[in-house]
Simulated scan of single mutants.
Amino acid sequence: MAGIIESSPAHQNFSRYDIRVITKFSAILGKDASCIHKDLVAVLGKNAPSIETVRKWVKAVSEGQDDMEDEPRPGRPVTACGDANISKVLVSLSDDRRKTCEEISTETSMSRTSVLRVLTKKLNNKKKFSK
């Protein structure tokens, strides 16, 4: 792949699944992990997986793993920053922009950390420190 395909924005839209399939295909062809990684970096640039990740995927292929999907992980999925919760926080703030995270949390039935995550990550509200 290196040298054949130039790195461009059109080639950087590969999903994680796509990259795993490319890695699997290359490993079946007999390429080693470092060669596969160089090819991925040539096409994907900074969006390429690390060499350690490529080694792990190549090892999985060599051990006969056919499934390239992510394994389910234990725990709750992160849904605190979903559109519904962002709307709840915005509605709560529409009454009074000076509410604390605890007040919003009580009003919206969301955890305080979820409220804080919505405020800082999704709404880009920065905490202002008094001097």
Rank of each mutant, 00 (worst) to 15 (best):
G45C: 04
N85W: 07
A48N: 02
G82Y: 04
L44H: 00
V54Q: 03
P74T: 07
G82W: 07
D66F: 02
D95L: 09
E63D: 15
C81S: 11
S92F: 01
R73K: 15
C81I: 14
A80V: 14
D96H: 08
V43P: 00
S92W: 00
E52M: 09
L44A: 04
E69A: 10
G82V: 07
V61R: 03
E52S: 11
S92A: 15
M68P: 00
D95M: 05
R97W: 06
R76H: 12
G45T: 02
P72M: 12
W57V: 09
E71K: 12
E63C: 11
G64P: 04
S92G: 15
R97K: 14
G64H: 07
A60W: 02
M68Y: 00
L90Y: 00
K99A: 13
R76I: 07
G82S: 15
D67Q: 06
E71Y: 09
K99L: 15
T100M: 03
V54W: 03
C101N: 14
L44N: 00
C81R: 14
S50A: 08
T53K: 06
P49C: 07
R55V: 04
A84L: 11
C101F: 06
G75S: 06
G64A: 10
C81D: 08
S50G: 13
R73L: 15
G82K: 08
L93C: 05
R76L: 10
V61K: 02
C81A: 07
K46W: 00
E52H: 11
N47Y: 05
G82P: 00
R98K: 13
R73C: 10
R76M: 10
A48F: 02
I86S: 01
L90W: 01
N47C: 01
S92R: 05
S62D: 11
T53R: 08
E71D: 13
G82H: 10
K46N: 12
A60V: 00
